[in-house]
Every structure is written in C-alpha cells, then in structure tokens.
Design a protein around this nucleic acid. Structure first.
Lengths: 113, 113
DNA sequence: TTGACATATGCCGATAACGGAATATAGAGT
DNA sequence: ACTCTATATTCCGTTATCGGCATATGTCAA
C-alpha cells in the first residue's frame, strides 16, 4: 500500500507547495483561473490541474461565470487538518498538566515535613 | 520543478497517512522503534524509514538507550502547519467582519429614513 | 568472540505525481 | 458559421516515493 492519492487525502493534496499557493490565492475571495495564473506565475494548464485536485478533495468549489470559472475556497474542508493538529495541542497540554500535578505533589510533600 | 521533497517539507512529509500514524504514536510520549512496530502493524524497516523522514523535517528527535533508540515528538515543528491554517481562520473571520459591517451599514441607513 | 536482539540501510520493482506542450471543449460576440 | 477567449484534458517523459526483502551496523550478555 502506498500513499493515498492526492485526490482523496487532504493532507497529501496540500503536500504540494504550488497547490498551497493556489489555495492561498483564494483566501481573499473567489477568483477565475486566469486571475490565479496571473498572480502566481504558473502555466494555465498547471493551475487548472491543481484546481482539479483541490476540487476533488473538496477544498475548493467552482461555478461558471460566462466563459470563465470562478473558484472559491471551501475552508470547512480544512477541518481534518485542524482536528489532527488539535490532538497534538491537547496531548501536549495533558502532559504539561501531568508535570504540573507532579510539581504540586512535590510541593505538598515539602509542606508536610 | 516538482514537489519539494518529503524530507524538506513538513506538509509533504505529513502527506503520508502511515507517517501520520507513526507520529500519532508518539503523542503519549517517547517510544522505541519496536514499540511503534508493534502498535501499528508495520514492518520494522518501514517504520525506521518513516522515522528517518520525520527526523529529517525535525518532527521527531531521538536518542540512544542501550540497543534501542527512543523517538520523541518535536511538536514545535508543527508550527508551519499551524501558521498556515491560522491564515485561513483569520481570512474567514475578516470576511465575516466585512459582511457584519455591511449589515450594520444597511441597518443604519434604514434607521435614517 | 560469538550469538541474539534492535535498528538502520541498500537495492529493487511498481506506482503516483509533476510539468510541458499540444489539443479539445465551451461560451460570447460578429 | 467563424473566431476570439477562457478553461479543461490528454499525452508524454522524468522524477519521487513507497514497501518488501535482504543485509549491514551496533549493542548487550555470556
């Protein structure tokens, strides 16, 4: 078994820096393919392909506007990453709490003497 | 130019689900390679290779303990992902704020009449 | 030193992914 | 119908990555 495909795993889809750049472009609002091509200096097919992958994992949506297509960010789909990160925050906090408890215990023992 | 290597880009390193699983294993504290192999059902070389990648990007550290090697999580190295995500939270909030301002403006105009 | 255990590394074949170039599709205007 | 323009898709060559297997390295214990 290899890596799950970039079209099915949000993490893998975001493993490519160019794709992150494309997504960053959409932070300020929806944009046409041409607008993205111009901002980043990437070829048009390249941008279209990255958008296709991003759409496959649901990170962007699009709708037609005349002969253009406007892509918009679907920030809700970032939750897998948010949740995954949250596990780590939680874990680190728990471990700090345990250290804290230990220190308090030491302190109480000191007071008892 | 292709993707930046999995040994130099945290995002790409975490694009592999097995590697995320290995990292998850370390949340509760440092562990030997053997312990990880046993928890997940992966081959030993496979785990060692994934740990090598994780070490290359700084997500884990290790120190020798007899004939074993104990790996520990370096959660600080997750900040690239945290920062990147934060941009999106911020952006979404800003856009909501703007909508909010717009609604208030409409409301004031209504009151003026 | 020899042997058992723990981990790392090297080699291999298969597959996925990227970018470039050319081409196809589709809408708008004449 | 023809022609721009905007975007998507296909084909292709190159490279990265993954897992398996075998093997090397290193460490303890007798």
């Amino acid at each position: 078994m290899a890596r799950s495909s970039t079209t099915s795993d949000v993490f893998n889809a975001l493993g490519d820096a160019n794709r992150r750049d494309v997504l960053d472009t959409l932070i300020t609002g929806e944009k046409s393919v041409g607008a993205i091509v111009q901002r980043l200096s990437m070829s048009q097919p390249q941008v279209s392909k990255h958008l296709r992958v991003l759409r496959a994992v649901g990170l962007v949506g699009c709708h037609a506007d005349g002969r253009r297509r406007l892509y918009r960010l679907e920030s809700a789909r970032l939750s897998p990453m948010r949740d995954w990160l949250a596990k780590y925050e939680q874990a680190v906090n728990d471990r700090l709490d345990r250290v804290d408890d230990y220190l308090k215990e030491l302190q109480q023992q000191g007071e008892g003497q």
